[in-house]
Design a protein around this nucleic acid. Structure first.
Lengths: 144, 144
DNA sequence: ATACGTGCAAAGTATTTGCAAACGG
DNA sequence: CCGTTTGCAAATACTTTGCACGTAT
């Protein structure tokens, strides 16, 4: 799903829910649409300010919470004390992350074998899995 | 590895590192030795106080940090704003967690298929993976 | 008009740090 | 003794909440 499609999808869902548009929300959505990978609320706030579109921190958090409730963004926990967010891929398509222990960068990847292993695991355990996260720590290609 | 073995192992490593024993550290280690699954610093502090062995919060954090540095505990991030800790299994043996969205409980499991999928993934991506975490969200057996 | 949206400031929670006193080897 | 460990309190960092004002429909 392209960035612009995601943004349209978000607007459709929110308007369907009877919500109105507003500046802060538009700014956060626009930013997330272009930045596909895991940003924290503070990073979003800083980036918006840097772009000359300062936005209240509370609004950023509220927008992210709203988007998460509607399944429009995913929360990504990297294990530092911050929650990161990224737009979700409605096609059931999704990715996971590798945190490079040297440069600190977040690298996204996907792997059908991994997804398959999780499906089989769900059957074996006899539990229902709504969502899952896989976090790898190691050295990325440039650092390794 | 049994609880008492872990505790001995911890003492051996720390004494090897030239560290001295102290009350707070002993209390945290003893608790972790008996509780094999993911406790947060605050939970540890509360539990110790409940057992009539109150321990300063800062000490709990310092002990956990120390144990983590020596690879004696693993950090487990469940995505609520807290870091949890559990003793690590030196046999290379380790487990992952399912967070039940209904009762909030943490269920541990392990799965060779999953570990295998991650090994193959590491080769495919051409990266070095030092460690990994898998977090499932869903309904546990009692709730599902 | 009337709900929804926003920003500020204050409060809340998790974690870290500075420091002086207590303690272990 | 001397360096480690501890506890308290203060500082930090992230996130949430209350409230008055602004705005979209």
């Amino acid at each position: 799903m392209a960035a612009s499609d995601w943004s349209e999808h978000v607007h459709a869902v929110l308007s369907e829910a009877g919500l109105k548009r507003g500046g802060a929300r538009e700014r956060v959505i626009e930013l997330l649409a272009r930045e596909p990978c895991a940003l924290s609320a503070v990073e979003i706030e800083d980036e918006l300010r840097a772009r000359g579109r300062p936005t209240g921190r509370a609004s950023v958090y509220r927008v992210l919470e709203l988007l998460a409730e509607h399944g429009l963004v995913e929360r990504v926990a990297v294990g530092d004390g911050q929650t990161r967010f990224e737009r979700s891929q409605p096609g059931g398509d999704h990715h996971h992350h590798l945190v490079c222990e040297q440069c600190g960068r977040l690298v996204a990847f996907d792997d059908p074998g991994l997804e398959h292993a999780i499906d089989r695991l769900s059957e074996r355990l006899g539990v229902t899995i709504d969502s899952h996260d896989v976090l790898l720590r190691g050295a990325c290609r440039s650092c390794g």
